[in-house]
Structures are given as structure tokens and as C-alpha cells.
């Protein structure tokens, strides 16, 4: 277990220069993620068009792993439809938690494979993905027919 496996060039770069940083306004969906253990906080905003992620931004405050992971996530999901995003989520999740998970088709996200050697940091890398899912769920809830009336 070497530090360079965790802090790869691409991760350090995304930490220093996060892509898609900020907040979409107006947005179709918003969610806040918080990791109470370390205080990492981030907000993901989305614009959706025909079941696809037309645009995405994130902002927040966290360690290098959480910032870089969020930054790379926004690049990876922009333009993708929901099914592909779900697939990507599963692959990233496997990459972060399973010893022999493949990193094929993950592009830059493969740089996160070192995180699994540092179990205390897995949640830092997955926070943005859980926040993304929460944002998508709020979008679904908003567009679903109201199930209850006051």
C-alpha cells in the first residue's frame, strides 16, 4: 500500500482544479451530501433532459479524495442517460470496495482504485455518488404523480 496509489496525479489535479465546480441555477434536482465522520459536505445540482443528465455541477468542501471523486464524476456522467449512470455507479462502487474489481471502461475514474486499500477513505470517494443518487431520486419524486394530498 503506497501513498502514490491513493494520491495519483489525476486525483491531485482534480482536487486542485475541480471541474464543473459551482451550482446550476435553476436546476432540476439538488441534493446535499454530508459525511459526518469527517465533515465532508457537498451539493450536487443537475439539469435533466429526456432521461439524460444534460448538465451537472458540484460544490463543497472536503478532502482531496472526495473533491477529486466528485469532479471526475461530473465529467463522467455529463450527457449520459440514467441507465448508463446507474451502471457507472455500480462499477465505481465495486472498484472502491472489491479487491479484484475491473477498472475497464471507467476512464479517469479508474484512478480511484487505490482508495480500496485505505478503508477509512472509501466513504470520501463514494459520497458524491450517493449524493447524485439522492438528487436523481428527488427529481423522480418531483415528477411522479402526487401520491398524497393535504
Amino acid at each position: 500500500m503506497e501513498l502514490q496509489d491513493l494520491y495519483r496525479e489525476v486525483i491531485l489535479d482534480h482536487n486542485k482544479h475541480p471541474r464543473n465546480f459551482g451550482r446550476l441555477d435553476p436546476a432540476d434536482a439538488v441534493a446535499n451530501g454530508h459525511n459526518p465522520l469527517c465533515g465532508d459536505k457537498l451539493t450536487v445540482t443537475l439539469r435533466l433532459a429526456n432521461d439524460a443528465i444534460q448538465d451537472v455541477k458540484f460544490e463543497g468542501n472536503g478532502c482531496a479524495i472526495s473533491v477529486a471523486s466528485a469532479s471526475m464524476m461530473t465529467e463522467a456522467i455529463k450527457g449520459k442517460d440514467r441507465a448508463s449512470v446507474n451502471q457507472l455507479f455500480d462499477k465505481v462502487h465495486a472498484l472502491l470496495t472489491q479487491q479484484d474489481a475491473p477498472s475497464t471502461d471507467l476512464g479517469k475514474l479508474a484512478a480511484l482504485s487505490g482508495v480500496r486499500e485505505f478503508p477509512a477513505r472509501v466513504k470520501c470517494a463514494s459520497l458524491c455518488w450517493h449524493t447524485l443518487n439522492a438528487a436523481l431520486a428527488t427529481a423522480d419524486a418531483a415528477s411522479a404523480p402526487a401520491v398524497s394530498t393535504e
Binding site: M1, L3, G62, C63, A64, I65, F118, A120, C124
Partner: peptide, 13 residues
Amino acid sequence: GVHPHDLGTILDH
């Protein structure tokens, strides 16, 4: 420029 958690991981290393 270094979040305390990254510091913690590097120090642990």
C-alpha cells in the same frame, strides 16, 4: 491546501 483527512492518511502512512 491539505485537508485534515488527507493529512491523517499521509501521517498514518
